[in-house]
């Protein structure tokens, strides 16, 4: 099934088979899975005791406890379920940038999304895809089989970066749409005011969702790799600015660093998982670094 997909070639899929995505918070899935559920049920993992009440099956009474304490208690076990992951992919114009990396940020992000969807489905979780720029453009509900991933993977190949990005709006929209506790994976260059992005993440966190941020940037955005006088044209707005690279190189790098610090700090404060993705790093390597065995 993987032979035809641009962003999920068979060799990549083969190398990603051993990876596993975990979540820290309980999630609500429809099926039995690997992840902790907020509910109690049948499993091998002990949760706690509760008093026996009328209607409880008598075979669940813990007779060893009754022998010691002369009380009828029932032993409860933690329910385990699968996760519903929503991949939120930024398709704004700025994602088309490529300079130092082998891929454009968009292609890199698509590869990440495809890989993650494969990993999730492969571990019996469900993966959905939401494309956005200044608003949510397209949504694919989570699917749980490899065969069902086909439309999502094909949709990735059809993406043409355009428009301006509005990340916080997409986050708020998604937070309102998702009913069950889920995993939200944001893949974007996050070229927006960090405070607005953090507000959107907090909205998701408030709704009990697990949030993973994959911050995708080209190395040339972090350190200016040109010199002399240049007229820069912003991809999303076409605004122009003449700059002398040598004059502002250090100030620019410092400003980018402060911005990255702010994002990282905001994610930590919101209990979101933040991961910086350099487009120079191969996708497989980046996913292994994040989701591989320690």
């Amino acid at each position: 099934m993987t032979a035809a997909y641009k962003f999920l070639p068979p060799e990549l899929a083969d190398r990603l088979r051993g990876l596993g995505v975990t979540v820290r918070r309980p999630v609500e899935g429809a099926l039995q899975g690997l992840h902790r559920s907020p509910h109690h049920g049948a499993s091998v993992e002990f949760a706690d005791y509760r008093e026996y009440t009328r209607g409880d099956p008598p075979n669940r009474i813990d007779w060893a406890v009754y022998a010691r304490t002369d009380r009828h208690v029932i032993r409860r076990y933690q329910e385990e379920t699968n996760v519903r992951a929503y991949i939120l992919l930024d398709t704004s114009e700025s994602m088309a940038f490529r300079d130092a990396g082998r891929l454009s940020k968009m292609d890199y992000a698509c590869s990440l999304a495809a890989g993650l969807m494969f990993v999730l489905v492969n571990q019996s979780d469900a993966a959905g895809l939401t494309l956005f720029n200044d608003e949510v453009r397209k949504t694919f509900p989570p699917v749980g089989s490899l065969g069902s991933l086909r439309p999502l993977l094909l949709a990735l190949e059809e993406i043409k970066p355009s428009g301006r990005s509005n990340i916080d709006k997409a986050l708020h929209t998604l937070a309102e749409q998702i009913q069950r506790r889920s995993l939200v994976i944001l893949i974007s260059d996050l070229l927006q005011n960090p405070a607005d992005i953090i507000r959107g993440i907090r909205h998701l966190q408030h709704n009990k969702h697990e949030v993973l941020v994959l911050h995708t940037l080209d190395a040339a955005e972090i350190n200016l790799n040109f010199s002399g006088l240049a007229e820069l044209r912003e991809l999303e707005t076409c605004a122009r600015l003449p700059v002398h690279a040598d004059e502002i190189r250090d100030a620019y790098a410092s400003e980018v660093q402060k911005y990255l610090d702010e994002l990282r700090r905001g994610c930590l404060g919101s209990l979101a998982d933040y991961q910086f993705m350099d487009t120079r790093t191969p996708v497989e390597e980046a996913l292994h670094a994040k989701f591989g065995q320690p």
């Binding site: 240049a230 820069l232 044209r233 912003e234």
Partner: peptide, 9 residues
Amino acid sequence: KTPRAFPTL
């Protein structure tokens, strides 16, 4: 001035 496309200003 060398024109350059850039993601953001």
